[in-house]
Computed example of a mutant assay.
Amino acid sequence: MQAIIEAITSKEGIVNLTPVIFTALIALMARLLAGRTRIRWGVVHDLNYYITEEEKKVMVWTCQIVFINPSKSIAEDIEIVFNYRPLHLSVFPHLKYEISENPDRRIVVKIDKLNPKEIVNIAMLNTHTELPHMTSVRFKGGIGKRIDLEPSRVFPVWIRGLIGFVMLAGVAAIFYVIARLAVSIFWVG
């Protein structure tokens, strides 16, 4: 065991292990950044209010759900299942989709594909009864994950670029410090 430690901490051991360590780090980063397909969804708004219709008040429920493909690969065969059919359901932007009913009378909205970074909204409206709950979001290769959404400020491109540059410089500085520490600790010479 002592011989192995001396071989690793020697000048030749460090020189020989450095490419192996960097190759392993690059392979790990490539795996983490690989194009796994994902679907994220969240409720943009869920409102109910009264409107007056022919001298009587009617309760109206509205809801908008957004579906996002944040990955770098195409999400295929998306199925969104609701408890029952609302009075009105619309999909935007306009794309090919089908609405079908399961034997247990649940409504399934099928979307053929979502391209990378594509966003689709489903808006629903109902009167007199609450809107149906969404029971599942599935796609070829996985299950959709709910995310919390809220309005936020979108900064100009130059500010986002500056923030990205500062973060990249910080990562480079961390690697530089780690490399300098490794050389000062293990360098025998």
Rank of each mutant, 00 (worst) to 15 (best):
Q2C: 00
A3H: 09
A3I: 07
I5E: 09
T9R: 13
E12H: 05
I14T: 04
I14S: 02
V15W: 05
L17E: 10
L17W: 14
P19D: 14
V20T: 11
F22I: 12
I26N: 13
I26K: 15
A27T: 13
L28G: 11
M29H: 08
L32G: 11
L32P: 03
L32N: 12
G35A: 14
T37W: 00
R38C: 00
R40E: 12
R40L: 08
V43T: 15
V44K: 12
D46T: 05
D46H: 13
L47P: 03
L47H: 15
Y49Q: 07
Y50G: 04
I51M: 03
E53S: 07
E54Y: 11
M59S: 03
V60G: 02
V60L: 00
C63S: 14
Q64V: 09
I65R: 14
V66T: 15
F67W: 07
I68P: 02
I68M: 04
N69R: 12
P70K: 07
K72P: 04
E76G: 00
D77T: 08
I78W: 02
I80G: 03
N83S: 14
N83T: 15
N83C: 07
R85N: 09
P86E: 09
L95R: 15
L95I: 14
K96Q: 08
Y97E: 09
I99C: 00
I99T: 12
S100P: 07
E101W: 04
D104H: 13
V108P: 07
V109P: 09
V109H: 05
I111A: 01
N115A: 08
P116F: 01
K117C: 00
E118L: 02
E118A: 06
I119C: 05
N121E: 10
I122N: 06
H128M: 08
E130N: 15
E130Q: 15
P132F: 02
H133L: 03
H133N: 10
H133I: 04
T135G: 02
S136D: 12
V137E: 05
R138V: 02
G141I: 10
G142E: 08
G144L: 04
K145I: 07
R146G: 00
I147D: 08
I147H: 06
E150D: 06
E150A: 04
V154F: 02
W158V: 06
R160P: 01
G161M: 04
I163M: 04
G164S: 13
G164Q: 09
F165E: 05
M167C: 05
M167E: 09
G170D: 11
G170L: 12
G170V: 06
V171N: 06
A172M: 14
A173K: 13
A173I: 09
I174Q: 06
F175L: 14
Y176N: 10
V183Y: 10
V183A: 05
V183M: 05
V183S: 07
F186C: 08
V188G: 01
G189Y: 05
